[in-house]
Design a protein around this nucleic acid. Structure first.
Length: 759
DNA sequence: CTATCGCACTGTAGT
DNA sequence: AGTGCGATAG
C-alpha cells in the first residue's frame, strides 16, 4: 500500500485501524484531512462499496473538499460516497421517509429567518411582549432543547427548564415551543434543528427503517467531533449500532461551537459508549513554524478545562509574531493592506497566501475598503448569504409556495407581492379564518372562497389562479423553466426590471443569478433528482461559503471570520480587532466557559498561520457609528513574550499609529468625507464584493437582444467563451444554442444569460 | 391600504 | 451606521 508512504506511525495507525470504534485526537495542522482521506481510500481498496461509507462533516465546504481529495486517489467511485453535513445527509433521508413522520416529501426547510418570522407571529397572536420574549432568546431556547432531544412534550414536563424560563421572565416559553412546532408541522416545514431531531425520532420509532440504514452504513466517520451536539451524536450512535465501525475525529482545543449546543461531553461519553475504543493522537504539527505552534500552546494553556495538549513541531523557528497597535480601525485596515502589498513583492507571495481573520462579520467592511484602495484582490467567505437577499427570498417564496402550499411563511411573503392591496390586516384575518376551520390557507383560498368578502376575493382569485397555473406546470417543466415562468408571470421580474436605480439593477441581476443557479442545478449530471422541490431543500442548507470556487476566485486575499477559517491554512495570517469586548466578545464576559471558548477560537485563528502571524488592534473603533476607545485583548498578554517580535520591529507601524493633533484632525476629515462618498455608492460596492465582472459598454442586456447574431463570439459569465450556433424563439423569449470552448453546447434563455459580446 | 417620518435599538459564530 | 417599528397622513 504505497499510498501510506510518508505517514508517521500514529497517522498510519489511524488509516489502518478500520474495524471497531476509533477516536482520532488530531491537533491543529497534524494532517487530519490527509489521514481521513486515506482512511476512506483504504476502505475502498479493501472492497467496501462507497455507498456503505457514511462520512459526516460540519460544513459543506469540508465535505466537498474531502470528496475531491478522495476522488483524486480512487477516482469516480468517490461520487457514490455518502459524504456531507449532518443536515444535508439527513434531510435526504427524511425526504425519502417523510411519510413515516406524517410529513410530505416536499417539505420546506425553514431557515433562521423563517423561524424568527414564525415566532414573531406567534408572540403577536399570543399577546406576548417581544421585548421580554426576545426572538433570539426564544429561538435559542427552542433550538437548545431540540439539540438535547427535548421535544415540546418533554419540555412541558421538565420543571427545571420551566424554572429557568420563569427566572428569565419567559414562563410561557414551553407553550410557544409547542405552538411553534405544531405550526411547522402544519406548514409541512422543518427547521434546521428538526432535521436532526426528526431523524432521531424516525430512527427511534421505526425498527425497519433503523435496520435498513444500520445495514447500509457499515462504516461511519465524523469529522470535527468536538462540534457535534447530542442530537447529532445520538443519530450516529443508532446508525453504527449494528456494525460498530465508527470513527470520530476531533480536537477539544478547537471546540468553538458550544454556544449552539456542541458538547465536549460527547468525547467523554464516546469512551463510555464504546468500551473497546481505540484512541490515536496526532500531535505533530506540519503546518506552522515553531514560534507559531509554541505561541498557540502558550495561550491555550490558560484554559483550566482543557483535556490534553502537547502539539509540537519539528519545523523551523520562523518569524516572531508581530503585534501591531493602530490609532483607528481605518488605519488598522491600511496597515494590513500595506503589509500585504509589500510582502507580495518582497517574498513573491500571491494574494492567496494571505488571510485576514476577524471575530465578527461587521469588521470585514473596513478591511475591504483598505484592500480596494490598494487594488489588492480579495474575496469574502461567509457573511451575508446570497439567499438572504430580499429579492432572492421573494422569488424563492413563490417557488416554495408552488411546491408546498402549506408553507405559511412563504405565503405571507408573497401574498402581497407585487402589491395587490392585501395588507397585514387582511392576511391576519385569512390566517385566523383558516385556523378556525382547522384548514390551511390554500384550502381556504381555493375551497372556501364564498366566505371571503367580495373586494378581497377578487384579488385573491387572481393570485390563486396564478399559483394553480404554476402547480400544473410542476411535472411538465424542469426547475429552471418553471422558475423563469414564475419570475415573469408573478410580476416580480417586471417590478425589478423597471427599477433603474443602482440598487434596483443589482437586485435584478441577483434574480438572474438565482435563475442561472437553478439552470446549473438542472444541467448538473450529478443531481439525480432535478425537481424544484429538491433544489429548494438543497439551497436552504447551502450558504455563501459553499459556492463553488470559481477560477476568478483563485488568487485573492481571503477575508473571513475565525469560525469559518477552521481547517484552512495560509502563509501569512492577520488576526485583526484584537480588542477586549470584541475578541473576546463582550458576551463572553458572563462565564468562564464562554471565555475559554473564545480562547479556543483564538487558538484556531493562530494555528491557521504557516509562516507569519500578525495580530492587530486599534485604539479607537466605530461601533454603530460611535467612535469608542478600545483596550487590547487579554489574549495578547497571554502569549509568551519570547515568541513576540521585539519593540524595535514594531516601531514603524507604532509610529504611524501615533499622530500629532493636527494630523489627527486632518485624517478624521478624510475619513469622514470618504465615508460620505461611500454611502452614495453602496450598491456599486456590493457589486464589487460580489465579484461580478462587468464592462458596462460591452455588457449584454436583454434590451439589446437583437444585437446577437449567429456566428458571434460571446463570453458567458460561467461557461466561458463560445460561438453562437443557433438562435430560436421560445414563447416571447429568445433562446440561443451556444457552443462553448470548454463546456460544449448549451442552450441558454437569453433574457437571463449574462453574455458579453467579444467580436 | 400605502407611504413617510421620527424614534429606538443593535448584542458572535453557521446549518 | 443601518434597520425596523409605530404613529400619522393621504
Amino acid at each position: 500500500m504505497n499510498f501510506l508512504d510518508g505517514l508517521n506511525p500514529p497517522q498510519k495507525e489511524a488509516v489502518e485501524y478500520t474495524e471497531g470504534a476509533l477516536m482520532i485526537i488530531a491537533g491543529a495542522g497534524s494532517g487530519k484531512t490527509r489521514v481521513l482521506t486515506l482512511r476512506v481510500a483504504n476502505l475502498l481498496q479493501q472492497g467496501i462499496e462507497p455507498y456503505q461509507i457514511l462520512s459526516l462533516t460540519f460544513t459543506n465546504k469540508a465535505a466537498k473538499e474531502m470528496r475531491e481529495r478522495i476522488e483524486k486517489i480512487v477516482g469516480i467511485e468517490a461520487k457514490s460516497l455518502w459524504m456531507g453535513t449532518f443536515h444535508s445527509i439527513f434531510s435526504r433521508i427524511l425526504r425519502i421517509e417523510a411519510d413515516r413522520l406524517g410529513y410530505d416529501r416536499n417539505f420546506t426547510i425553514y431557515d433562521t429567518d423563517d423561524s424568527k418570522a414564525l415566532l414573531k407571529s406567534i408572540l403577536k397572536e399570543q399577546n406576548l411582549d417581544d421585548k421580554v420574549y426576545r426572538i433570539n432568546n426564544v429561538l435559542g431556547r427552542i433550538s437548545g432543547a431540540k439539540n438535547k432531544l427535548i421535544t415540546y412534550k418533554l419540555y412541558a414536563q421538565n420543571d427545571a427548564l420551566k424554572a429557568e424560563d420563569a427566572a428569565s421572565k419567559m414562563p410561557e416559553l414551553y407553550r410557544i415551543y409547542e405552538i411553534y412546532q405544531k405550526k411547522c408541522y402544519k406548514s409541512n416545514a422543518m427547521d434546521f434543528d428538526d432535521l436532526l431531531l426528526l431523524t432521531n425520532i424516525l430512527l427511534r420509532d421505526n425498527e425497519d427503517i433503523r435496520q435498513k440504514y444500520q445495514q447500509k452504513f457499515q462504516y461511519v466517520m465524523i469529522d470535527e467531533f468536538q462540534d457535534t451536539n447530542l442530537s447529532q451524536y445520538n443519530i450516529v450512535k443508532m446508525l453504527s449500532q449494528k456494525h460498530q465501525n465508527i470513527c470520530v475525529v476531533g480536537d477539544d482545543a478547537q471546540s468553538i461551537y458550544a454556544f449552539r449546543g456542541a458538547d465536549i461531553q460527547n468525547i467523554l461519553n464516546f469512551e463510555k459508549d464504546y468500551p473497546t475504543l481505540k484512541t490515536v493522537r496526532l500531535e505533530q504539527n506540519y503546518r506552522s513554524t515553531n514560534n507559531i505552534v509554541q505561541a498557540a500552546n502558550s495561550v491555550i494553556a490558560n484554559n483550566k478545562n482543557q483535556l490534553r495538549k502537547s502539539v509540537w513541531t519539528s519545523n523551523d523557528e520562523g518569524n516572531k509574531i508581530k503585534l501591531v497597535k493602530t490609532m483607528t480601525d481605518t488605519e488598522e485596515g491600511r496597515l494590513v493592506a500595506d503589509t500585504i502589498f509589500e510582502e507580495k513583492h518582497q517574498n513573491s507571495w500571491k494574494n492567496e497566501d494571505f488571510a485576514i481573520l476577524y471575530r465578527t462579520n461587521a469588521q470585514s467592511r473596513i478591511m475591504e475598503e483598505a484592500l480596494r484602495r490598494k487594488n489588492i484582490k480579495y474575496k469574502i467567505v461567509g457573511g451575508f448569504s446570497f439567499y438572504q437577499r430580499q429579492e432572492i427570498k421573494d422569488l424563492l417564496g413563490y417557488l416554495r409556495f408552488t411546491v408546498n402550499q402549506r408553507d405559511e411563511e412563504a405565503f405571507k411573503r408573497i401574498i402581497n407581492l407585487p402589491k395587490r392591496g392585501i395588507g397585514d390586516t387582511t392576511v391576519a384575518k385569512l390566517l385566523a379564518m383558516a385556523n378556525e376551520k382547522n384548514i390551511n390557507v390554500w384550502e381556504l383560498l381555493t375551497e372556501h372562497t364564498t366566505e371571503i368578502s367580495n373586494r378581497i376575493a377578487g384579488v385573491l382569485e387572481v393570485f390563486t389562479n396564478l399559483i394553480k397555473k404554476f402547480i400544473q406546470l410542476l411535472d411538465s417543466k424542469d426547475a429552471h423553466e418553471l422558475a423563469v415562468i414564475i419570475a415573469k408571470e408573478s410580476g416580480l421580474l417586471k417590478d425589478l426590471y423597471e427599477d433603474k436605480t443602482i440598487e434596483g439593477i443589482s437586485r435584478y441581476e441577483n434574480v438572474q443569478e438565482l435563475l442561472n443557479g437553478i439552470s446549473e442545478f438542472v444541467d448538473n449530471e450529478e443531481n439525480e433528482d432535478k425537481s424544484l422541490s429538491t433544489f429548494l431543500q438543497q439551497i436552504t442548507l447551502v450558504t455563501s461559503m459553499d459556492e463553488a470556487s470559481k477560477d476568478e476566485d483563485k488568487d485573492k486575499v481571503t477575508l473571513m471570520t475565525i469560525h469559518s477559517a477552521k481547517g484552512l491554512e495560509f502563509k501569512h495570517v492577520f488576526v485583526v480587532g484584537m480588542e477586549e469586548n470584541l475578541f473576546p466578545s463582550q458576551m463572553a464576559n458572563n462565564s468562564l466557559a464562554a471565555i475559554e471558548e473564545e480562547r479556543r477560537l483564538f487558538y484556531v485563528a493562530v494555528t491557521r498561520a504557516e509562516q507569519k502571524l500578525t495580530l492587530t488592534y486599534a485604539q479607537n473603533r466605530y461601533y454603530y457609528g460611535n467612535l469608542q476607545q478600545c483596550e487590547p485583548s487579554r489574549f495578547l498578554s497571554e502569549i509568551d513574550k519570547q515568541f513576540l517580535q521585539n519593540e524595535g520591529g514594531m516601531s514603524k507601524w507604532t509610529r504611524q499609529g501615533f499622530m500629532n493633533k493636527e494630523e489627527s484632525n486632518e485624517k478624521d476629515n478624510n475619513t469622514f468625507s470618504f465615508s460620505n462618498q461611500f454611502k452614495k455608492t453602496t450598491a456599486n460596492y456590493t457589486k464589487v464584493t460580489n465579484l461580478t465582472k462587468t464592462t458596462p459598454t460591452a455588457d449584454f442586456k436583454p434590451s439589446n437582444l437583437a444585437a446577437l447574431k449567429v456566428g458571434m463570439k460571446v463570453e458567458h459569465q460561467k461557461f466561458g467563451v463560445g460561438i453562437i450556433k443557433e438562435l430560436q424563439s421560445f414563447q416571447d423569449d429568445k433562446k440561443a444554442i451556444i457552443n462553448f470552448e470548454t463546456q460544449g453546447e448549451k442552450t441558454l434563455l437569453l433574457s437571463f444569460a449574462k453574455l458579453q459580446i467579444l467580436e
